[in-house]
Amino acid sequence: MREFEPAQAPHMPSPRTVQGVMGQVLLALLPGIVAHAWYFGPGILLQILLASAFALAFEAAMLRLRSKPLAPFLLDGSAVVTAVLFALCIPPLAPWWIAAVAMGFAIIVAKHLFGGLGHNVFNPAMVGYVVVLISFPQAMTQWLAPRELAEWTPGLVASIQAIFSGSLSLPATVGIDAVTGATPLDALKTGIEQGRFVEEIRQAPIFGDFGGLGWEWIANWYLLGGLFLLWRRVIAWQVPVATLFSVLALTLPAWLLDPGANPQPLQHVFSGGLVLAAFFIATDPVSGCASPRGRLLFGLGVGLITLVIRRWGGYPDGIAFAVLLMNMAAPLIDRYTRPRIYGR
């Protein structure tokens, strides 16, 4: 007679892993990252490396403090995803300590003080971003101009210097104004506040066909990555669809009624971090809604709050605040949107 070890059904181990999920998210971000580096120089790559290093260091320290095994949690990829998403939101030449402060807040406070992987109430990347955005507005608004407009785009050495010394050493013939510039959303906001017409503001060279020059193409590549995640079923379709839908549905009537004071819907979609957020940030399952209808409401809320902040708020873009505010609402939404159970 042969003896066997006791076990529990099912007897087919899941082929999926947390690492696999995070890996696919990173893979899906790759085209957008490459485009970003093309338009704004290699600074973004340095920021990704910096933020990842800080994130992993804080993660390791917190795991040690919480007496958790290091290897499975460092390798699960969640800290790196947080770091990359954060790095994609900040100016490419932001000083190194921006990443340090943000990742410290994201990993230590937003993630581990709430219980680590799977327990964070707020999206860690957005917590880190908002902390530095509010604390260091000066450093966070030093945006570079896209390649087509800039007389000179910083290379690798210049970028490293700028990030670690805090000052950009320019070639003798180039002035700082030719390198940095306001983002399209900035320009729109200040322009509208000054009472200028949208069409007039959009004459500025930083605007492209429907979004910001450069930005619109980066957004397109994020869109491609997002579609990949949808196809792989890594993210739920409800969140990006609802987010983009609410932005289009709310801006279209405003634009039709008064195109002088309201940017066209596609301008909204393809500027700032909207596409990135719709597919990669608002879709974070841990801090978002769990039920299908809840996810639709979550996306609608993100779109609505983003527009409110863009239109009436103190910041040119409001996506990070929108995501964090909806994170707060997620448990309540989930309570009231539970699916009907079979036969009940």
Partner: peptide
Amino acid sequence: DLRPAQAEMPCIRCGDCAR
């Protein structure tokens, strides 16, 4: 047939189970 690709991890609420 039985070898899992990874040990048990915390739930990340991906929601695939509900799907």
